[in-house]
Nucleic acid binder design. Structure first.
Lengths: 198, 198
DNA sequence: GGTCGGTGAATGAGGCCTCACTCACATTCC
DNA sequence: GGAATGTGAGTGAGGCCTCATTCACCGACC
């Protein structure tokens, strides 16, 4: 990583913290600069404006997830197992960087007017890929035929809600407990449903 | 409804439209005033500040849902049926006032620093009530024992995601189609799960 | 090895603009 | 005619971004 990329990374991390605690709009460039230990002007040597910072934050996460998805899609394991791995990885990452999780669930819609492509890709891209997996699973008979658009949307919505819920938990151990078993709980929920099997 | 309440209501409706299209932060008081056909100053005769408008918007919706929940909880029907009715009603209301739906899914977290109680009640209150229903259903054997906190959080997360997805649909008929069958699709998804019943 | 000029990252005060909110006055209502 | 309601230009606080300047570093040259 070049020196330049390094500094960009430092600013990104600082911005994540500030946005996570104050929200995008209250996260002033002053606060970000202070958190990164640089002057305001320095930020503008690495990003063209405040929005680009938010976009970059999302882009980094999107790419992480897409890479993992791609690696997974070639493997010869049941689709539901792929799904479980995908969610597990996601919750793991949130656990390691809770602030990133905060930003992702909170700022998905942030600057409405000029929609940022990094955020767009995240909102649409991840559920779309889940839908692809579900379609595949329907085709090979692993799951029953159903409206995969609704199912994929619902599944990812659950994930975000659980992340959001976990992160409002002030007790650190409880937070970790929720995140740790979240993937398995959700997969079980979506596989078996709620009804008693009789 | 008194004349005063009437005007407050008009301003609320106008604000909903403006916030739905621009997002809370870009929704200036000027735009709201214009949309309501009044002067900026008038708004401040009915609301003490901009945040209170957003809070009021949420409060109106929360109370609608709580009233329906209360009416439902006394009835002698299966819990899962209550849940279905609750969701059906919710999606119906969104269909009739899509802008309100936009605001609810987008602005849940809006002004982070000083959390607005109307919004808080919505974020926490609705899932909490769903969890109560699930607990009841577990107790009377209607559904299998499970982590009802996760299940309730997930269920409501799915609802919000589907609403959000439907509202990004520009084709009006498609939007209605999604919303119309959303409640049943979700209930079925959560009851039967995805797996093939063999 | 000491001097010197070139380079570009870093700085932060302030320009400029936006927007929530006010208030002195006008209008309407009863 | 007095109370209630409406008005919208004005105010000032606050925040994004700029840019003239600084300065640490480095290679060139004597």
């Amino acid at each position: 990583m070049t020196k330049r990329e390094n500094k960009r990374e430092e600013i990104r991390k600082a911005a994540v913290e500030v946005i996570a605690t104050h929200g995008y709009y209250a996260a002033t460039t002053d606060k970000m600069a202070q958190a990164a230990g640089v002057a305001v002007g320095t930020i503008y040597n690495y990003f063209s404006n405040k929005e680009e910072i938010l976009e970059y934050i999302f882009r980094v996460e999107v790419e992480k997830r897409f890479r993992y998805y791609d690696a997974l899609s070639n493997q010869k394991i049941p689709v539901l197992e792929k799904l479980r791995l995908l969610l597990t990885r996601h919750f793991d990452e949130i656990q390691q960087e809770p602030a990133v999780g905060q930003v992702m669930v909170r700022e998905r819609y942030a600057p409405l007017d000029r929609q940022l492509s990094g955020i767009q890709e995240f909102i649409q891209g991840v559920p779309t890929r889940i839908q692809k997996l579900l379609d595949e699973a329907v085709k090979n008979g692993e799951i029953r035929p159903c409206d995969t658009l609704i199912a994929a949307t619902a599944l990812w919505g659950s994930v975000e809600a659980v992340v959001s819920r976990a992160l409002t938990e002030s007790d650190d151990d409880k937070q970790k407990a929720i995140l740790a078993k979240a993937a398995d709980s959700l997969i079980e929920l979506y596989c078996r449903g709620l009804k008693k099997t009789d």
